[in-house]
């Protein structure tokens, strides 16, 4: 009996100490009076900090450089979520771990914002029928259960996310409601401008197919701007291995398509894209899915708008922009 008590005490001690130690190191002491906001993915973090201005402290759960699909929260992360005022995540498809954690959190004050709450997710199957090169991505299952969770890559859907977050902030902190809504409005104008810019730029592009050497996260983007895509991977799971047939098909398509660029995804080593590029004599270009950013980017203070702007510049190259 005595032994059991000791074990319990010891266990409790470890449980209390560990997350505390790690969480204290990660974030500065919370400033009293400010809303504490924890976000999962980089775009949510960026949107939230634009809306929150100086009224809240926004932090990003994902460590820089960690590929979002392979992320697993640590005890310290769970403590951060439970101590926060607001927790923002993309949705149960993108962060499957979030559901279990949220169930286990006892903090009644925590406001949870599901960024995809007001958005109808598109089925991946629909996308497949949309483009000609269906043979490259069809008949598969993937981790997102047939639906594409990468809503933020579409600037129009991004505006909805911003509104959802702003409403959440306003409900949580009614005193600053007008401030949040005004910030959101300003930011949504920037997103609208980005949308216009993308639209006008892509109109001047002669090609409509994005040749992508990674897991294609730009489904909403492609649909919004009438683009097609080719990817050797079935679905979005970065653990899946492409088949040699798909790689050779990509090489052949790329050769025929007289495109000299192939895009690769951020944060993962673009091994497969490199091989396709080499086989077809094409060049590699980054198409940044903005799930997360690298340590260098974080240090530079990169924003969502920067990333999308950069993507657009590189899409100009790959899609044959003519002024």
């Amino acid at each position: 009996m005595k032994k059991a008590i000791w074990i319990l005490l010891f266990g409790a001690g470890i449980y209390l100490c560990l997350p505390c130690c790690s969480s204290c190191k990660q974030s500065a002491q919370p400033t009293p009076g400010k809303l504490q906001v924890v976000t999962t993915l980089f775009p949510l973090y960026d949107f939230a900090r634009q809306i929150a201005g100086d009224k809240a402290e926004v932090s990003l759960l994902l460590p820089p450089g960690v590929e979002s699909h392979s992320f697993e929260p640590r005890p310290g992360d769970i403590v951060r979520i439970s101590k926060a005022d607001v927790f923002i995540y993309t949705g149960p498809l993108m962060e499957p771990w979030s559901q279990d954690i949220l169930k286990g959190i006892t903090n009644k004050e925590l406001t949870v914002i599901n960024a995809s709450a007001n958005i109808q997710l598109a089925n991946e199957e629909q996308q497949d029928h949309d483009h000609e090169a269906g043979e490259c991505t069809h008949d598969h299952e993937h981790e997102h259960g047939g639906q594409d969770p990468h809503i933020w890559v579409d600037p129009i859907l991004a505006q909805q996310i911003v509104s959802t977050i702003a409403d959440g902030f306003a409900a949580k902190d009614p005193a600053n409601k007008d401030y949040y809504l005004a910030n959101a409005k300003t930011y949504n104008e920037k997103l609208a401008a980005l949308d216009t810019q993308i639209r006008t730029t892509l109109e001047k592009c002669s090609k409509k197919t994005i040749v992508y050497g990674g897991h294609f996260a730009f489904g909403y983007f492609a649909r919004r701007y009438g683009l097609e895509h080719l990817s050797p991977y079935a679905g979005f799971s970065p653990n899946a291995e492409p088949t040699p047939r798909k790689i050779t098909e990509m090489i052949e398509t790329l050769k025929k398509a007289d495109t000299s660029y192939i895009y690769y995804e951020e944060l993962l080593e673009p091994r497969v894209a490199r091989i396709i590029a080499e086989g077809a004599g094409a060049k590699l270009l980054l198409l940044h899915g903005a799930h997360n950013i690298s340590k260098q980017e974080l240090d530079k203070g990169v924003t969502y708008l920067d990333i999308m702007g950069g993507n657009l510049e590189r899409l100009k190259l790959g899609l044959g922009y003519q002024d």
Binding site: S22, Q26, P63, P64, G65, V66, E67, S70, R74, P238, E241, P242, P244, I247, L267, L268, E269, R271, V272, R274, I275, S294, K295, Q296, L298
Partner: peptide, 21 residues
């Protein structure tokens, strides 16, 4: 990985190759 708190590239993708690549 935890102390370093972040890399510039995902660790797993760098380490684990594929015979096709």
């Amino acid at each position: 990985a935890s102390v370093g708190r972040g890399f510039n590239i995902d660790l797993f993708s760098f380490l684990f190759g594929s015979i096709l690549a």
